[in-house]
Computed example of a mutant assay.
Amino acid sequence: MPIAVDIDVMLARRKMSVGELAGRVGITPANLSVLKNGRAKAVRFATLAALCEVLECQPGDLLRWEAEDAHTEDAPRGVRADA
């Protein structure tokens, strides 16, 4: 997925655990883990705002776009180039 999640970076900078962040944001540690590991399909703006408030950062500090490699870009949508 071309959206990379950098929650780990902000957790390290703030010296905060996943459990502490989850509790302060109001989501389960399991759901935060899904988001943190890039497995989430979507994130609610309210959750993103809460993450930013607790971590004292901007959305761009948590999420960034990365271009996919050339092989993937040439493949039809929904088809993996390495399949």
Results as ranks from 00 to 15, higher is better:
58 Q>K: 14
48 L>T: 08
39 R>S: 08
68 E>C: 12
75 A>I: 02
30 A>L: 09
51 L>K: 04
54 V>K: 03
39 R>K: 13
37 N>Y: 09
80 R>E: 13
78 G>N: 14
35 L>I: 12
47 T>W: 07
38 G>A: 10
35 L>R: 03
41 K>N: 06
66 E>Q: 08
33 S>Q: 05
72 T>K: 06
43 V>N: 10
53 E>A: 12
79 V>Y: 15
34 V>H: 00
61 D>M: 03
27 I>E: 05
28 T>G: 13
70 A>I: 11
79 V>P: 09
52 C>G: 13
51 L>P: 03
51 L>H: 04
46 A>S: 13
66 E>K: 07
72 T>R: 09
64 R>E: 02
69 D>F: 01
62 L>I: 00
69 D>K: 02
59 P>V: 03
27 I>N: 06
41 K>Y: 04
71 H>K: 14
73 E>F: 07
80 R>P: 09
75 A>R: 05
60 G>K: 02
63 L>T: 02
79 V>K: 15
53 E>G: 11
32 L>K: 01
44 R>A: 14
27 I>G: 03
53 E>N: 13
79 V>G: 10
65 W>M: 03
41 K>I: 04
57 C>R: 06
33 S>R: 07
76 P>D: 15
70 A>E: 15
37 N>T: 11
31 N>S: 04
27 I>V: 15
31 N>D: 05
46 A>Q: 09
52 C>W: 06
76 P>M: 13
48 L>V: 10
73 E>T: 10
29 P>W: 00
71 H>R: 14
73 E>I: 10
68 E>W: 07
51 L>G: 04
78 G>Y: 14
52 C>H: 08
59 P>H: 04
44 R>L: 11
44 R>F: 08
68 E>T: 14
32 L>D: 00
60 G>S: 04
62 L>N: 00
73 E>V: 10
47 T>K: 09
61 D>H: 06
71 H>F: 12
68 E>L: 15
27 I>D: 04
62 L>S: 00
30 A>D: 10
47 T>V: 12
57 C>L: 07
61 D>S: 05
64 R>T: 06
70 A>F: 10
68 E>M: 15
57 C>G: 05
73 E>P: 00
47 T>L: 07
49 A>P: 08
42 A>M: 03
30 A>Q: 14
58 Q>R: 15
34 V>T: 01
59 P>N: 01
47 T>F: 07
71 H>C: 09
30 A>E: 12
